[in-house]
Amino acid sequence: MRQNFRNWPVLLVLFVFSAPLLIMLTFLLVDAFTTKVPGTMFPNGVTLHHFRFLWTDLDNGSWGIWGVTLNTFNFALFTSLAVTAISVTAGYALSRLAFPARGFFLGGLIVLHAFPTVTLIIAIFLILQLLGLYNTLIGVIVVKAALELPFGIWVMKGFYDTVPWEIEMAGVQDGASRFTVWWKLILPQVQPGLLAILIFSFLSGWSEFILPMVLAPGNDAQVLSTYLATMLLDGGTQADFNLFKAVGLFYALPVIIIYLVFQNKLMNIYGGGTKG
């Protein structure tokens, strides 16, 4: 194939700009598996010592990496299930049903979508305190799901908007109830959107830091991001950075795997979800 411009200048520019990222990732990987003399640049030995957190309890008061990982997994999973379930139904309603104050909800959705949610954190703190959900995983899940919803609903509405009306009318004429039509005929058409929301909100939950830190600082509800943070804070000047990087690698691994497996599905969100 003849190309109408050269590749290498583009590649060079891209390389220069992504070099810092690349270097950081390389050192994350290298440092996690090697030892070196402080102050030197290059490692002098290979070790798995930094991964000791996987099989021994670190003496920092939390209940071990596996408990924290389970917490993180639960947090991400239930957040994404809640977000998906609500987005899929709310998106349909906003796209198809003429209910009162529909315009208000649509407008509100856009505002919330662009809202700097951190500013709400004190109010949320008070509400959770009142409900007795402060310092529990459920509390953080509820808050995280609520904050993810505007995005999810908006994307799902976009997907529903692309499904022709006639399919719905045909289903109704075929004798199916509105619910059957939605479940059997419409939902399969928006499946790519559903999957994308599921994965995106899972990843977003997996990497959430602020909410668990502020709303569930206790050890019982600790997740990997706060676990990492306490490692830094507790260690002070003595912090073991190689251990920190090993935990970081462990923490990032699922994200990378999910991205690799589902990257095509995730791209769908830009294909179908942009119609207002």
């Binding site: 022709p164 006639e166 399919i167 009318m169 045909a170 289903g171 004429q173 075929d174 004798g175 199916a176 059957t180 059997k184 005929l185 399969p188 058409q189």
Partner: peptide, 25 residues
């Protein structure tokens, strides 16, 4: 029974399931 201008076939079902849908319902 209605035939729509763009046919409104259910794209995720094969022909058999399309035709059978009203009966399954």
């Amino acid at each position: 029974g209605v035939v729509f201008q763009n046919y409104a076939l259910y794209p995720h079902m094969n022909v058999f399931d399309n035709i059978a849908f009203p009966l399954k319902v």
